[in-house]
Amino acid sequence: MENKKVFAVIGLGSFGYTVATKLSEKGYEVMAIDKDENKIDDISNKVTHAIQLNALDEKSLKEIGFTDVDIVIIAIKELATSILLSSFLKEELKIKLVIAKANDVKHGKVLEKVGVDRIIYTEIESAEHLASTLITPSIFDIIELSPTYNLVEIKAPEPFLGKTIEEIDIRKRFDINIIAIKRNQPTEGEDFKLNFEQTTIISPSPKERIIEGDILVILGLKEHLEKIEKL
């Protein structure tokens, strides 16, 4: 357990609550803070510390000190509170890593200015995610690794089927990497009843042949990935 990061989550709406309980489930020490007593009651037996506190109460915040806290996550919808608190945590308490949820781009820009290290646009991000997966039904999942890099899970495009990774020459032609293949492997059944199990081939060799039903996990620049999605 030593050297494990300690987290504080301020604001226990559905986003803050989920982040706090998930971290706690994974065995991390979590301090959960909200001004609403009911919310504190709900979470009190799910995290290490649950504290009822107004996030603008600087004196109490100073008392808590956050000396052992490595990462603070601010999940407050109310604009002024979220901004004032962010600035206080960065400037006064010198918290190394502050992550804040922004309602929109404007909110995010201000948070950036007061020194927030990472800004989460939950609504925009999930909307973009949904739109991409709806427009391109062959995409099962997208993870944005950086503003330029994505990790996508995509149905193996028709022109790839039956060919090896080497034959497709995927690196040269598309400048992307297949980092895993999810494959449905038929298993034996009685009376010709069909069944399969999903296997994952991590770092597939260049000799690996892509077959029907494969899902490719690809890493690459967004613009290069788009070319594959259009195949």
Binding site: P186, D191, K193, L194, N195, G213, I215
Partner: peptide
């Protein structure tokens, strides 16, 4: 039997 196997097949090809 036929319907079940067809369902499994569709699931296999996502």
């Amino acid at each position: 039997d036929l319907l079940y196997n067809l369902a499994i097949l569709y699931e296999s090809v996502n």
